[in-house]
Amino acid sequence: MSAAMLSVRGLDAWYGKSQVLRGVDLDVAPGEIVALLGRNGAGRSTTLKAIMGAVQRSGQVHFAGRDISAALPHDIARAGIGYVAEDRAIFPDLTTYQNLILGEKRGPGGSFTLDDAYALFPRLRERAGAPAGALSGGEQQMLTICRTLMGNPSLVMIDEPTEGLAPMMVQAVRDLLERVAARGTTILLVEQKLAIALAISRRVYVMGRGRVVFEGTPADLAADGATRREWLEV
């Protein structure tokens, strides 16, 4: 895995005194869509936050040839990792437009502009002047993804983008992810809906109790009934 864009080795993370991650190893190669699967509390979201430097952590994280193990979140973002939070973290009092331009920065991932965001999701243009807090859940999800893309990351980490969305919006999010990937942007995805995760990703990691318990292709996972029963199925 010398070609890895993101390489994580022995990543531990804590919330206060309780350890949530225990020695997580994972790699993401350029252009891949990689899914992180597992039940609630398995440590998937925390893995993303730990890579962003948003929780107390230790271990090795390398990105694009740079050691970001001890970097601050804004430096990690500037290095080219975009993050879409599970709780979306839109700025409710600011307008849709203002939310988008807050994400605007130069990055290694190309030149994604406001017009690109509006082209990907025309509804954002229609609601440009509205407070983001007044958007529907699906629109807010589109907004957060586009806001992160405005920073031109070469790797986007997305946490549960389809959670709580109506089926039509789930499909729209899935289309969006595939279009983002088609632009050459690498994606590390945390997703509860197995069907979507397996359909769009090239490789999957399954997590349980703060560790990686399975690594392989979606086909490998489909063939591994024991792993699915123990770590995924409810």
Binding site: M52, A54, L72, P73, H74, I76, A77, R78, Y83, A85, A89, F91, L102, G103, K105, G107, R147, T148, G151
Partner: peptide, 8 residues
């Protein structure tokens, strides 16, 4: 936190 993770 989110503002920081957007690169500010």
């Amino acid at each position: 936190d989110m503002v920081a993770m957007l690169g500010h």
